[in-house]
């Protein structure tokens, strides 16, 4: 594997991309899990599909259109739930099929319909290119800056939003940052995990950290450990057994979580 990594750039990019996405997952997943936003992560992932389809039709930049559609989706959800127009889950439930249907309709007119659909739905780590790597690095920087500046604000937002709002934490701003944060992370992750398997990165590390940690810092570290170990193990297994990496990483992460849960109970 090491010889191949040295010889083939696409393999190096795939591995590097997987590591970067694991870092992103470590930051985003705990917030998603503790704020019970799992459905939003799923919704944003599906919304990305519409942007990717537009990019495919126009033969244009997938990241730009992916970000655009996921941010539009996230803003809709944020606006309607914050303004108490509809519940968060109802808004997601209504918009998710709309974005997905839009994407499928567009892609059905594309010549590479079957190939693209499969790659987007289940991921294709070998399609990771340099732009994806730069984008993921950019999102990680953005995320780290937000965490450094608003670490305690995020703590209070997750721990007791109502009191946080009363005492002056800008909870609307924090929740907007988090929406952007989830959207960017989903776009950065979509080539590796695919839309359907997005939970591997958006939910599982957070669940693992929740079971095993007793502090917010511990949660981030455990989440990072989990996503890195399961991604790299899945990646290696996929390489040696010639399996698709996305689903292999997803199953590896699930097995790791299952083992942890079982050991924890004992």
């Amino acid at each position: 594997m090491i010889r191949d990594l040295l010889s083939y750039e696409f393999l190096r990019l795939a591995l590097f991309g997987t590591i970067l996405v694991s870092f992103l997952a470590a930051f985003v997943s705990p917030i998603v899990v503790y704020r019970k936003m799992e459905f939003i992560g799923d919704g944003v992932a599906h919304a990305t599909f519409a942007g990717l389809a537009v990019a495919s039709i126009l033969s244009s930049d997938a990241i730009f259109f992916g970000v655009l559609s996921s941010v539009i989706f996230a803003l809709f959800v944020w606006y309607f739930s914050r303004k108490n127009k509809f519940s968060e889950s109802s808004t997601i439930g209504v918009l998710l099929p709309v974005f997905m249907a839009f994407g499928v309709l567009l892609l059905s007119k594309s010549r590479s319909y079957t190939v693209d659909l499969s790659s987007y739905l289940f991921g294709n780590v070998l399609l990771v290119n340099k732009s994806d790597i730069f984008f993921a690095i950019g999102v990680i920087f953005f995320t780290i800056i937000v965490y450094l500046l608003f670490w305690r604000d995020i703590t209070y937002y997750i721990g007791d939003e109502k009191a946080a709002k009363f005492y002056g934490i800008k909870v609307n701003l924090i929740s907007l940052f988090i929406m952007f944060f989830v959207s960017f992370s989903v776009v950065a992750t979509v080539k590796i995990s695919g839309i359907i398997l997005m939970g591997t990165y958006i939910v599982l590390p957070g669940v693992f950290a929740k079971i095993t940690s007793k502090s917010f810092k511990g949660i981030i570290l455990k989440s990072l450990l989990f996503s890195l170990v399961s991604s790299l193990t899945g990646f290696t297994v996929a390489y040696y057994f010639d399996l698709p990496p996305g689903p292999t990483i997803a199953l590896t992460a699930f097995v790791a979580l299952l083992i942890t849960t079982t050991l924890k109970r004992k």
């Binding site: 503790y34 305690r152 703590t155 209070y156 997750i158 721990g159 007791d160 939003e161 109502k162 009191a163 946080a164 005492y167 934490i169 929740k210 940690s213 007793k214 502090s215 917010f216 511990g218 949660i219």
Partner: peptide, 17 residues
């Protein structure tokens, strides 16, 4: 309204204001 699942210690909790 407190998220009891989130690991925040009492000291941090009361220091919010």
């Amino acid at each position: 309204t407190v998220n009891r699942e989130f690991p925040m210690d009492v000291f941090t909790y009361i220091l919010l204001p």
